[in-house]
Design a protein around this nucleic acid. Structure first.
Lengths: 292, 292
DNA sequence: ATCCTGGTTTAGATTTTCTGACCCTAGTTT
DNA sequence: AAACTAGGGTCAGAAAATCTAAACCAGGAT
């Protein structure tokens, strides 16, 4: 019955946020990734929270963690609360800078698809300032401060560009490629995050071979190398359209394998008619099939 | 159109909380008090937030601040979000320590009314641990982590003890007090936060005089001094009932002036039937009129 | 005139929070 | 069985955030 000397402070917001993310994503590592900190930081936050509560929120298991009954009871409300906070934050951001549109997309899309379209967008709506963030994976739009998100997916959002894969190379190299089998003689460039492209296409082409060649972690770099004649790249139609159009790259084979996952555009919230984000979205979605 | 190097981080939670409190309470000083920090800290938080947003949230005026259109647009959502967060936090706290009940009350009530009742409560429910925090003003129950709040008020909550004021003093002094007019000859003890008590009672008693005497900032101290014979204290019936019952203090005059504001009990949320908080509330409310 | 209220500013201290490098465990792979 | 991998935990130190104290300012009230 102590007349508690330190008036009970409210729990630290950072720790609550870490707990919420870990609960929602099912692990500290995933939470750390979402919050943009190291896993150790999340561990520490959750541990501190558990200590001030005097009760465990997660059961530690050999592989990952699992919510305790207490954690599970609290998680839902926390998620709701932080969702509400993110919404309020979006209102704040949107009203404070109504002419700024934040777009999240893959690095490859940013450089090879979005970037070439920006001059036209700037010309069409000079008062809008588009800020692009390259991410390896789609952000959680309920939380991350982006207005638009542009990622490959099979469903959801709005289709902005269909995708198909086809081998492309510098014109000088094309002469040596009569049949798909000839690929065995040349380096096959590929991107680390699209490792499945070559096997897929080769299977569709009916060729029993393994593609060998340098692997890049940045697709735009692979494209550059292909232009330089370093080998044959498995091209994604929307991303190499410009290079094909101006002849820096050519497609030695007719087969373009359509992919189920096209480039799709999501908006964080329903777009207010006439808002800058709505106009950018409309601009990007204008010509779903077209090359630039 | 920069490929923004630092992925836009979400706004700092602390700053948002400071903004929300300032918006809701209408000033930085009030916000600082609620958050338990200095006004300078709130100024800094809000300023930092305004800088990262690139827009003002408050108009600074000679006397206080006023929300800008932007601030007003964001305030509602922020308040909702932090309310939701506080609710989630309460769930967490409640489930983590279901047998702990946090009570907020005036220092005087804590020492003179609540404290004497605790032994009986402990006897009746030994498994419940009551933690008492003394506050000068009622907390915002939607936010502060208290289960119960016990403060004088005219309406609201549940009446737990009616209040009335009456002069009290040590028995030795009472002999010198035949009529209210005799008060002029003795020091009139009073509490800083109840400065109106003496004038009110004297007016009701029909005496035209000003009470003179030492002023205390802690009512319990004034009571102690009265017991020691230092003068006549304007007693609050529920708070001096124990001393009157055991004779350490006596009431030299018959007039006890009833006050509209009685001691009232609020709960932060509807009390779950059978919960520790509900049981404590029931115990405290058991005998609204009775002395201890 | 002087006080009072409410906000602002600054330097410096304190506390929080994060990283980086390492350890640990239990599955999985080789 | 040995090596890997995935996911956490720990620790010291560093970095960043946050806070306080104390002094300052402006305008209205006494």
């Amino acid at each position: 019955m102590p007349v508690a000397p330190p008036p009970p402070r409210s729990l630290p917001l950072t720790a609550l946020r870490a707990f919420e993310a870990a609960a929602r994503l099912g692990g500290f590592a995933a939470a750390a990734a979402e919050l943009g900190v190291t896993p150790g930081a999340v561990t520490a936050q959750v541990k501190a929270l558990e200590e001030t509560l005097g009760a465990a929120l997660f059961e530690r298991q050999s592989k990952g963690v699992r919510l305790t009954a207490l954690g599970a009871a609290a998680a839902g409300g926390m998620t709701e609360a932080f969702d509400a906070l993110a919404r309020a934050e979006a209102v704040l951001r949107g009203r404070a800078a109504p002419q700024v549109v934040h777009v999240a997309t893959l690095p490859a899309v940013a450089q090879l698809w979005l970037s070439p379209r920006l001059p036209a967008l700037r010309a069409a709506a000079p008062e809008i300032s588009v800020s692009i963030t390259a991410l390896e994976a789609p952000p959680n739009l309920k939380r991350a401060p982006y207005d638009l998100s542009l990622f490959p997916a099979e469903t959801g959002g709005q289709l902005v560009a269909a995708d198909a894969i086809l081998p492309v190379c510098a014109p000088a190299l094309a002469a040596r490629l009569k049949r798909p089998q000839d690929l065995a003689d040349l380096p096959c460039l590929s991107d680390a995050s699209w490792a499945e492209d070559w096997p897929r296409w080769l299977a569709a082409a009916g060729v029993a071979m393994q593609a060998r060649g340098p692997v890049f972690s940045l697709y735009a770099l692979a494209v550059e190398e292909a232009v330089n004649g370093a080998g044959v790249l498995m091209g994604h139609a929307p991303l190499v359209a410009g290079h094909l159009a101006d002849g820096r790259l050519v497609a030695p084979f007719a087969l373009a394998l359509p992919l189920a996952a096209g480039l799709r555009l999501w908006s964080a919230r329903p777009l207010a008619k006439g808002s800058a984000a709505a106009r950018v979205a409309a601009f990007l979605a204008a010509r779903p099939g077209a090359a630039v």
